[in-house]
Design a binder for these strands. Structure first.
Ligand SMILES: [Zn+2]
Ligand SMILES: [Zn+2]
Ligand SMILES: [Zn+2]
Ligand SMILES: [Zn+2]
Lengths: 127, 127
DNA sequence: GCCGAAAACGAAAATGATTGTCAAAATAGC
DNA sequence: GCTATTTTGACAATCATTTTCGTTTTCGGC
């Protein structure tokens, strides 16, 4: 893993929530790095290809990334206010998705599941 | 509802799966309409605002729309091959999402759930 | 340490979906 | 018919992401 890619992963590790390529680029430049935007995109592409980071789409269609602690399949509970994310599991959901696919004759069934909300801190701050 | 918006909704009704604004624009032009791309975007915006159509994002971040039969909250089982979509319900998933949010102190909990697979027809065609 | 191939970089241009602008066209009320 | 309002659509502008293409680094072999 190259130094630059290492830096991108590092920046992701320091964040608790999902961050976009543009966010990470800004973070890195802010701390003095001379990294280019193209390289940030390439690093994120490689990291998500190798499964080292999770990626999902915001409601506006922007790709956001996160370095998750768990290697296993999981989903996220994401705060709409601060972006903080909690890794969650849902055996019931996994079974349901499989069953739904099978029931309608679909094969190679996969799924996307994300839960959004306002975290306790953000709720408090709003008062 | 204006004639043009009516036309967009009509085009969506004729499709069984999710379609992008560009897809619908192409469909309408193909059948002779002189509608503009901007108008298609505006119609879809209005239709989704009023809840008449469902919208979701493809893995590439493109917005796709569908005129669903059900007014109630539901999810979709979508074919990766032909785009065909089936409306599905999952009470267990609804409860799970709520519980997960509550457990971590999140409020105003919402969720996105989509199931993807290859439909029977597409599986057969691949043989 | 030195050399050339291969990999990594990054600036700038290209892409592609979506949105903003604004004048022309359709529509409604009178 | 006639003016006020809404809708429309060609075109420009945005913005995230991808391509392109020299330049710089890295690295194995010497
Ligand atoms: Zn928060
Ligand atoms: Zn899952
Ligand atoms: Zn299919
Ligand atoms: Zn649901």
């Amino acid at each position: 893993m190259s130094t630059r890619r290492e830096a991108v992963k590092q920046a992701l590790n320091e964040a608790s929530g999902f961050r976009s390529a543009q966010d990470l680029y800004a973070d890195l430049r802010a701390e003095g790095s001379k990294i280019g935007l193209t390289t940030v995109y390439r690093a994120l592409q490689a990291l998500s290809d190798s499964g080292e980071v999770d990626v999902l789409r915001t409601g506006e269609g922007e790709a956001v990334y996160r370095a998750c602690a768990s290697d296993a399949h999981h989903h996220h509970l994401v705060c709409r206010g601060c972006g903080r994310a909690v890794e969650v599991e849902g055996p019931a959901v996994e079974k349901w998705a499989e069953a739904v696919g099978a029931k309608h004759g679909f094969t190679e069934v996969t799924h996307t599941v994300e839960v959004f909300g306002t975290c306790a801190d953000c709720s408090a701050r709003a008062n």
